[in-house]
Design a protein around this nucleic acid. Structure first.
Lengths: 162, 162
DNA sequence: ATTTGAAATGTTATAATGTAACAAAAATAC
DNA sequence: GTATTTTTGTTACATTATAACATTTCAAAT
């Protein structure tokens, strides 16, 4: 996404591979930090990655329940764990969760959210980050976290409407 | 807030006057748009303005109930109305609402939220706005709304900690 | 291999936030 | 003054999230 293209919208995007890679990266990150990538955590992350769209906690729960019992705390705990490692992000304006492309990098949450198809792309723009930081500093404010949620139409949906 | 100072934190801030002015501006805006500034809407807006901190819908409800019956839809309807006119904004990461300083201007939501004292200041930085717009355009994304929520420490709380 | 302590998960109940649907009342238009 | 629209009341419920405590699983140390 550094190049500003939402490449996983395109037809040639191999999504199964995309998910598998995300899971592999996640496992690596967990291990390297001495955390356990348990089957529940893996399953929840996999469900979240199955689309590039934010998914609600109770939607994850429903999917989990198709293969056995599960209750809300199970899902929320997994989500909390995954968020702590930046493997998923919460989209505040949607009460929903989305997989993170670059969990290895320290980064803020910057999201493009399509109001039509709901696809959600994560940005990681240093320029946005630093302008916000600078403006906050002008107000004497010490930033610990930035959340940028940008609603609108993705390129594909925008074309279809015109 | 254009000057980047959070002046209403200071001791000389006359908050009653601040609230009164906000209500007067709100009334004017409603009238000028052919909308009714009913007593419920006024009361809800007043409650929200009583602090420069985001307040939850159910907290507003509690206050309302001190002077008669009220149920959640009453509050949410008033909040929806006030949001439509940009008289209040919803802070997504807090599930809470805050009064808007400059409802007359077209603007995006940009907020500085102090994690310590919870005070919330609205920015309206063209620079932040345009950088986000530009970055989104690079991804072929057509922006309809930006939400920027910046967590951290306000000047006052930051000083107190050091 | 067994014990043991910590981490993770199960389970039940409930809290917190938000909305649907329809009835009644109030304001405005005719 | 009646009709129409807008606002509010009221009840019930949907959605999102967490508290509290029991049980299980895992891994480290013996």
């Amino acid at each position: 996404m550094k190049n500003g293209k939402l490449e996983y919208i395109s037809a040639e995007h191999d999504h199964q591979r995309c998910v598998d890679e995300a899971l592999a990266r996640a496992e690596h990150i967990c291990v390297s930090r001495g955390q356990r990538f348990t089957s529940i955590r893996r399953k929840v992350l996999e469900l979240i990655w199955q689309q590039h769209k934010p998914i609600g906690a109770y939607e994850v729960l429903e999917q989990l329940q198709r293969q056995g019992r599960a209750a809300p705390p199970t899902v929320y705990r997994a989500l909390d764990f995954l968020q702590d490692l930046s493997l998923v992000h919460r989209i505040e304006s949607l009460n929903a969760f989305v997989g993170c492309n670059q969990p290895h990098l320290p980064h803020e949450g910057q999201f493009l959210i399509c109001e039509s198809c709901r696809i959600c792309a994560e940005l990681d723009s240093d320029e946005i980050h630093s302008v916000i930081e600078k403006r906050a500093a002008t107000a004497g404010f010490k930033v610990t976290q930035q959340r940028v949620e940008i609603m609108g139409l993705c390129q594909k949906c925008n074309k279809e409407r015109s």
